[in-house]
Nucleic acid binder design. Structure first.
Lengths: 244, 244, 244, 244
DNA sequence: CATGAATGAGCCTTCATTCAT
DNA sequence: TATGAATGAAGGCTCATTCAT
């Protein structure tokens, strides 16, 4: 028993070690720079050993993505907790998104790599299923807030939209802005000086447009977001630290 | 003189031919399947010749992206034309975005490839500048509508947002939804059944949230978008055809 | 004592199990697909355990070949039995060859693999000796018939040929035809439509050429072979079944 | 023109050089020892260069086999020439077979490798077609002699056998004996002391069994074969030398 | 300018064998 | 004795780039 447990722990540790080595390579130099050769040469193990843990490099990326999405999920959960008004908890999740993109930028980048078609083609379906479950989990945290608000009357009935489709819009604007920020080298040259604040405002306007109570004007909203950020960033940092 | 001109035309034609060959490879099989060998083998020219036109394959992708963004620009221009109310012209641009993603899906995909970090690392700054100009051009078409509406009072003053930052939100939600649709294998499993309609509604709510006149309810808005699509799709198709 | 005996039986059973697992892999996918990893993964034992039974995969192949040749030997013995005329018993062995190639095609293929040079290079001489003994055993079954016929005057004296060299010719034509049939993708395209019947006729003519009594014309011979096949195939099947 | 021709010649020479390097490796150490790495390291060229000539190592083996079978074909043609009686020309082809197996033993071995299933699986169908054409060519040289003898009445009508099936028997016994000789380490231990003479005798008896005129007894036949061998081996050696 | 053979580093993967537990 | 993770050499193959013609 003890014997087995120790060996298993060693193996798990090595798996973790592989991930720790692979992550910065992927982040700094991209998918094609992430080769089994390089991972092995950064460890005291041989290439074949890596293959005992992951059948191909795509699975490594997926595993990193799973870790990343679990962290996101935890942040979302933390943001959605408490007995504040639903819209405020939603705003906190927005702040969690900002935190994730800015302070967990490696995880954020890993999530983008995960969306690469090559990776889905080559990896096993088991890990793909886990990824989708993580995605659905995050979606549900937010959708639950929408449902709650609908029930309590804070949010007027959505005629043509499922709660998840309501979330989809928020997801799209958040995600889209982050991708654009990351991949458009000079948003400033385009006239976009503060993309984060801009998206905050858009979210405010969007929720106002849906009539989600309490309606907030930009001033109030920006102030509130600042307060939430100040309060929750430390909590999020704590979660980040605990997440290995 | 004549001699040179003929030669130059031949060179331009060859450049076009290279792009015509490279595009379907990139679309169907991705960046790593796009090799100079394959491009050459699909033409009557040799690999070395390709190198006389493009110093590396990344430049080919960037050139394809420039073509794609020029088409997008034309569609945006067409959508922004006429003397209809600004918000309606903005909606037409939204329809142009949908058209572009759905009917010019190859160009849309090329634009995504362009955002790949590897490509920016390896390509020349000249083409990168052109890309940014195209991007700025599209941005300006929409920003001009925002400015016009602000001047005419259709859109209340934006306290904390430049017109471009106003556009940025629309860009983010549109772009983000399209990326998510393309890369999340089963939005439906997440509860998102009609992402296109969902985003239409979100755009409606967002603009309403900004108080952009005329305020439209979802029903009116969806109906209106349908009408615009019916009217403008043929025009867009014409533009697409003319764009070689 | 009992303890040891039980252990020994377990070991023998495991050896058999390894052979049962290895055989279909070798047959269906060839020598290079037969890896210790695959064998182990098809059993409840680990790779290291396999190495306790066979020092390398070549020995597994040789052991399979020994089993195969033992079956061949049994079939030959059955064909050579009875008190019919020697030439008829020889024909029965010919039928046994056909049975072996057709109905014991796995064993037949294993024998071919055994002839692969790599296997002889890597395997131990003990098993190689056993193989040769099996080969000699089969040879002797037939050679005995030749000797008997020579003594009884059915077969005229062979001036320049040992009885074994007489058998060698029959072995060569039988074996050669089977290899050619197995490895020439389209004998039919070469004009060879029924290789089995063709070889039956050649054997008839060859024995006639040696003056082996009773001389038979093709018609009689083919008819006789059919009868022998009808009578002996069930017996051969019985032997095959008993051979595990 | 001259330019192209020179380059093409250089390429052809390099192709030949690859074959010259690959052949002894295949002969001496077998298929799995024949690696592109080794071939390259034995030349002054890089591995990639080998791949410009042959898409995989299996094609190299097939190309070697094509060369080998062309040599066989030439020897058969030489043996079948002249206006001697058909049966004598057939014997000369038999001598050519012996010459091929003994003096062109490398080519003979290459032909055996060609029959390896792996090679057929991985190689291009173009070369496979050529192989089959070579095989059919050799078959036809002999089948033509059979047909001629049938027409001239030297060989009684074959009731149940096509001329090619007649040849098949000779092919099988010749081929089979050569394989057995090559792969049974100690025929002598089995009682087979002179397999070549044995097969000569079997061929004699077989043809006698078919009533092929002139009927020859063993003594005459062996003597005649010796004479043919003495006369034709120098010619065959000449052909072998000319075959590069 | 066009050509396209040559390069050779590098990629992903396999697997027979070892050996500490 | 059984285990199975680790090894690491080796294999097949690719491809961006160069350069002599």
């Amino acid at each position: 028993m003890v014997e087995i447990t120790r060996k298993q722990r060693e193996i798990q540790q090595r798996t973790q070690e592989i991930l720790r080595v692979a992550k910065p390579i992927l982040i700094a130099e991209g998918l094609q720079a992430l080769t089994m050769d390089r991972v092995a040469s950064h460890m005291q193990y041989a290439k074949g050993t890596i293959y005992n843990h992951f059948p191909n490099k795509e699975e490594i990326v997926l595993e990193l993505a799973i870790e990343a999405m679990k962290l996101r999920h935890k942040l979302f959960d933390a943001g959605a907790s408490g007995d504040r008004p639903a819209r405020m908890r939603l705003m906190t999740i927005g702040v969690a998104c900002e935190f994730y993109t800015q302070r967990c930028s490696e995880e954020f980048q890993v999530e983008q790599w995960m969306r690469n078609a090559n990776i889905w083609d080559k990896s096993s379906s088991e890990r793909q299923v886990i990824i989708r479950q993580c995605e659905a989990g995050c979606m549900q945290v937010v959708a639950r807030l929408v449902r709650e608000s609908l029930e309590q009357g804070d949010l007027p009935a959505l005629d043509h939209l499922s709660p998840e489709e309501m979330v989809f819009g928020l997801w799209a604007i958040t995600f889209g802005s982050q991708i654009l920020t990351a991949s458009s080298p000079s948003l400033e040259a385009l006239g976009v000086f503060d993309p984060i604040r801009a998206i905050r405002i858009h979210c405010c306007r969007l929720l106002n447009g849906f009539g989600w109570q309490p309606i907030l004007d930009e001033h109030q909203y920006l102030k509130l977001v600042e307060n939430i950020a100040a309060e929750y960033f430390p909590r999020f940092e704590q979660i980040q630290r605990e997440h290995r």
